[in-house]
């Protein structure tokens, strides 16, 4: 796997307001979670506008009923990160279906109290590492995706 160093990340993050802080946090996270990679790509907002943003894309290791699964996720960092929370999605493969529920909508968007209460101050520093740990715990109780049964057609979601 290619190693991304902090210097290269800073170049990719040149339009980010807190570039150094963001690059350092990404470097720390991908050193711990080796199946996440920083990817620069176009993100389309609800109003149809689009910006090139950094995401952490890959899988998170989640234990569920005695097995470890690699849950595919994509965590988008806005250009005001870490003062705005990431926008997070599960990214099911064609062999998976989303399990909508309290924390996941039909588009795979992730909703967590940690994201809703995101705050980056001297007293309280929400960060990617904390967010990922929360995701792993929540997903180990309620996986956001399931393997599609082989007899079902694709592109269905399972209602909780």
């Amino acid at each position: 796997m290619a190693v991304v160093n902090e210097g290269a990340l800073k170049k990719m993050l040149k339009q980010y307001k807190y570039r150094d802080l963001t690059a350092r946090e990404i470097t720390n996270v991908i050193s711990q979670y080796k199946d996440l990679k920083p990817v620069m790509d176009a993100y389309t907002f609800n109003d149809g506008s689009s910006r090139d943003l950094m995401s952490l894309t890959g899988t998170l290791p989640v234990s569920y009923r005695g097995n470890v699964y690699n849950i595919p996720v994509c965590l988008w960092l806005l250009d005001m990160y870490p003062y705005n929370p990431p926008i997070c999605f599960v990214k099911p493969t064609s062999a998976m279906m989303i399990k909508t529920g309290k924390h996941i909508d039909a588009n795979g968007k992730i909703y967590l109290p940690y994201l809703h209460e995101w705050k980056h101050t001297h007293q309280s520093q929400s960060d990617l590492y904390g967010l990922i740990q929360v995701m792993i715990v929540v997903f180990s109780e309620e996986p956001p995706v399931y393997s599609r049964p082989t007899t079902q057609p694709p592109y269905q979601t399972f209602q909780a």
Partner: peptide, 14 residues
Amino acid sequence: LNGGAVPSAPPTYT
């Protein structure tokens, strides 16, 4: 070879 872990998910329980 550079792709990281293969995505996987628990089986569906009915």
